[in-house]
Simulated scan of single mutants.
Amino acid sequence: MDKLAIFDVDYTITRKETLMELFKYVISKDKKMIKFLPRAIFSGTMYGVGIYDERKVKEKFLKFIDKIEEKHLVDLVKSFYEDRLSKLLYKDALDMMKKLKHEGYKIFLISASPEFYLTELYAIKEVDLIIGTKFLFEEGKFARKMDGFNCKGEEKVKRLMEVIKTENIDVDFENSYMFSDSLSDKPLLDLVGKPYLINYKKKHEFEILKWN
């Protein structure tokens, strides 16, 4: 049986929220993109008061790359990883991946963040699979439309189970790990025998690890 080591991404293996970092990176490359900041603030506010759901807030927020050609988006996220994202990774997270990979675990990253840039994390040689929120491309351009559901909570479990079924993986969940900074990942944390919260501020029944 295969043992999994599952990692959330934002604030679990990274110090910051990755989608906002992508936006800031785009602004650093083209100062005119600051024009999308009011939209980002408005979308966040609408989500905070419960008017926008997570699908709508992400689709609204991603206006700053709306209709970018796919080949240009590939170049953008590659440079984003090299220049910024790779520098946000917790050393303790990378060390844990190396340790568990050496012990025979499959390393999965499962996140609600957009998959179109999370796939750059395959540069971490220990990573076997990345699952994130999917977005559509139409006529070779980014369409700013979510493909399926936001990959959060129970949806993470559903997406994982789809991969397990498709790849015919026989998983030993009792001896598998899950690492997350948030209880929104409780469905995945409950699925494994070795759940851990990362840098969690309150006491909890799950063991808490401090990562830097």
Rank of each mutant, 00 (worst) to 15 (best):
K186I: 02
E70G: 03
A123I: 04
F36H: 11
V127E: 10
L76D: 01
L109K: 03
F116G: 07
L4T: 03
G132K: 00
K194V: 07
K125T: 10
L160S: 08
N175S: 11
Y122C: 05
A112T: 13
D8V: 07
Y117E: 11
E207T: 09
V192S: 05
E205D: 12
K31Y: 08
F36R: 00
F179A: 06
K99I: 08
L76M: 10
I41G: 05
E167S: 13
K125H: 07
K202V: 07
F7E: 01
V74K: 13
K101Y: 01
M161Q: 14
K60T: 12
K141N: 11
I169K: 13
H204D: 15
L189A: 00
L100E: 04
Y105N: 06
D2A: 11
E70Y: 03
K156I: 00
M97D: 01
L118R: 09
F42G: 00
D172E: 10
T133K: 05
I110R: 09
L109N: 07
L191P: 03
A93I: 03
I110Q: 11
G48N: 13
L209M: 14
L209W: 00
K71P: 00
K201R: 15
I51V: 14
K152D: 09
F149A: 13
V192K: 02
E162F: 10
K134S: 09
K203S: 14
F36A: 04
Y11S: 10
M1F: 02
K106H: 11
A123G: 02
D10C: 15
D170K: 15
S28I: 00
F61Q: 01
D172Y: 05
I130D: 07
F42L: 13
I130K: 04
D172S: 09
V77F: 00
C151V: 00
M20A: 11
I169C: 05
F116W: 10
K203F: 07
S43P: 00
E120C: 09
K145N: 11
D190F: 00
G132F: 06
A40N: 11
A93D: 02
C151T: 09
V74M: 01
K63G: 04
I107R: 02
D172F: 13
K87C: 03
R84G: 00
E167C: 10
M97H: 01
D8F: 01
F173I: 02
I34K: 14
Y122H: 14
D128P: 06
K91S: 12
I6S: 04
E59Y: 06
T119K: 15
K87T: 10
L129V: 12
